[in-house]
């Protein structure tokens, strides 16, 4: 863990409201793993006050990328960064995905911007088949940036399967019958909750990347508890997560 002042390479708009910020940081690029996150100071002043946590979306050589929606002051400022601007990044934070264990097919499931951590995971996976399921409200909500073998679901059916991404998984489930799968997921809590129930009931390996409002990102503010499956115990999303085994947490 370290803080580092990092020059912005580019900000690219890849969808109506989805941006990719690419920055040059050999230090972070070599230290960070898929599923981990960074805490970004978007301005050099005290406003906005706090850092913003973003999952690492991709690492390409010495470049790191973040995927985000513009929905508040912090992301508006980020979306307006230009080549050469400097951002202060705290990284690498949290625990990432465990993806080198024994299984045949990695099924990545992202709800909306829940796709964010998967380009990097896709890049790092070796000798596994990949299936990626991305869900959103409509076609403007989803992206296949950096992903492989993508199937969409949308609430309005404007692209792909009409329904949510967990229903899409269930509809495709027969395709995976003959191979051992491991699910990697990220997205809104209701989606993760449905997915968690499905995977626990069917005894499928599943890791969930969670999120929670937080201040520091490394355990000192105690701001980001998540219920653990053990009675009367919280984990911290930042330090114990953000990636958890589906059985380990209560959503």
């Amino acid at each position: 863990m370290f803080t580092s002042k990092v020059p912005v390479e580019s900000v690219e708009k890849i969808q109506e409201n989805i941006f990719i910020l690419k920055a040059f940081s050999p230090q972070i690029a070599s230290a960070i793993k898929p599923g981990q996150f960074c805490n970004l100071k978007v301005s050099e002043t005290d406003f906005p006050l706090l850092r913003r946590p973003f999952s690492i979306s991709d690492v390409d050589g010495d470049y790191i990328s973040f995927m985000f929606n513009k929905h508040g002051e912090g992301t508006r400022i980020l979306s307006e960064k230009r080549n050469g601007d400097v951002i202060d990044i705290l990284a690498p934070l949290g625990n990432g995905f465990t993806y080198e264990d024994d299984y045949d097919t990695a099924v990545m499931i992202g709800g909306g911007l829940g796709a964010a951590p998967f380009p990097f995971l896709t890049r790092r996976l070796k000798n596994k088949k990949i299936v990626t399921l991305i869900g959103g409200r409509n076609e403007k909500d989803v992206t296949d940036w950096g992903l492989k073998n993508v199937f969409y679901s949308t609430d309005d059916g404007s692209i792909g399967f009409k329904g949510n991404v967990v229903e899409l998984l269930i509809s495709k489930f027969n395709d995976f019958k003959d191979s051992e799968i491991k699910i990697f997921s990220c997205g809104p809590t209701p989606m993760l909750k449905a997915l968690q129930k499905f995977t626990v009931d069917n005894n499928i390996k599943c890791e969930i990347s969670t999120e929670c409002s937080m201040a520091c990102g490394f355990g000192i503010c105690q701001g980001c508890p998540i219920d653990s499956a053990e009675k009367d115990k919280y984990y911290l999303v930042c330090k114990d997560g953000p990636v958890f085994d589906a059985e380990a947490i209560v959503l």
Binding site: F47, P48, L49, C212, S213, Q222, G223, C224, Y234
Partner: peptide, 23 residues
Amino acid sequence: RKGNPPQRIVETPSGMLNAIGLA
């Protein structure tokens, strides 16, 4: 002490609110 359930933190203009609950 287990502390309060989430959400515990929110950013406000030039500040933040916390209700950790003495975890």
